[in-house]
Amino acid sequence: MASPTAIRPSGGKPSPRRGSLYRGAEGMWSWVAHRITGVLTFFFLFAHVLDTALVRVSPESYDKVIETYKNPFVNLLEVGLVGAVLYHAFNGIRIMLIDFWSKGPRYQRQMLWAIVVVWVLVMLPGAYFMLERNIRHIFGGGA
């Protein structure tokens, strides 16, 4: 006699429940941020190589494309790019220290907070000087 056992149509194992996120500590989120900033930087480089290569097509079309970049939105993207590259670079140094310095794994958390502090210290004046011109332009300062 066959036993009355229901067999799921797919037959395989169930897919994991959605939204069952693992709550990792700083180390995991630094890795997630490293991935995201890395991919973002890659996409920037992709577009950057294309627009720079345009100069070989004709200097005029290059100028035309660069002209479209001169707006506040792209200015914000530029600040984002600097932030992404900076984080990726600093965290890359942290990962190298974790890899090659025997005490690296023990101090990984302190090193992460250190690079976050340095990142903020660099980004504050960096973002100010990058955005200054556009902010004055939009909000109608003296210039």
């Binding site: 990792g24 700083e26 180390g27």
Partner: peptide, 9 residues
Amino acid sequence: CRTTFNCTD
């Protein structure tokens, strides 16, 4: 290994 430190935690 991508040194996410989840295992250590």
